[in-house]
């Protein structure tokens, strides 16, 4: 069996003061073990966009980060409103961000498309009224 590194992080909805910290943590872990820069960048972008969506739209969530010598995997699961029309949400430019979120620099409607573009494997599922789950894989 290949050794696998696993770590779980909690994300709190609406906590903009700490928003993004999990992703920068994951980034520094990957940097410290010497993973190629452009791969670290892709994983970090995926983690950051997913983390910010939990902070902006959900009540709470958790990020499970795992990695083995061949790939990294990030599962982001939240308890929140869920997404009614996933196809629409995946469209570049589609956003329901409030004006407050826009003032903080969000709401381009690029987050989910960015994740898809940077991931090698990507899966999104959601149940309205319950929450959303993203599964993101990047090969090392």
């Amino acid at each position: 069996m290949e050794s696998t590194y696993v770590q779980e992080f909690k994300v709190i909805g609406g906590d903009f003061l700490r928003a993004g910290q999990v992703s920068t943590r994951i980034k520094s872990i990957l940097k410290d073990i010497g993973i190629n820069h452009s791969i670290v960048r892709r994983i970090s972008i995926c983690a950051y966009e997913a983390e910010m969506n939990v902070v902006m739209y959900a009540q709470r969530g958790k990020i499970l980060f795992s990695m083995n010598p061949r790939k990294t995997h990030i599962t982001v699961e939240d308890e929140g409103p869920g997404i009614e029309d996933i196809e629409l949400a995946m469209r570049e430019g589609y956003s329901t961000a409030t004006s407050e979120m826009q003032e903080m620099g969000f709401g381009a409607g690029m987050g989910l498309p960015n994740i898809k573009k940077n991931a090698d494997t990507f899966h999104i599922s959601s149940v309205v009224g319950k929450g959303t789950k993203l599964q993101i894989g990047v090969m090392i």
Partner: peptide, 24 residues
């Protein structure tokens, strides 16, 4: 001023000009 645009359209090692001066 939109952070996802930066993540989508910036090159590594670039200089970022922005009017958004928060921690994000």
């Amino acid at each position: 001023d939109l952070m996802s645009d930066v993540l989508a359209f910036s090159k590594p090692q670039c200089l970022l000009l922005t009017g958004l001066s928060n921690s994000q």
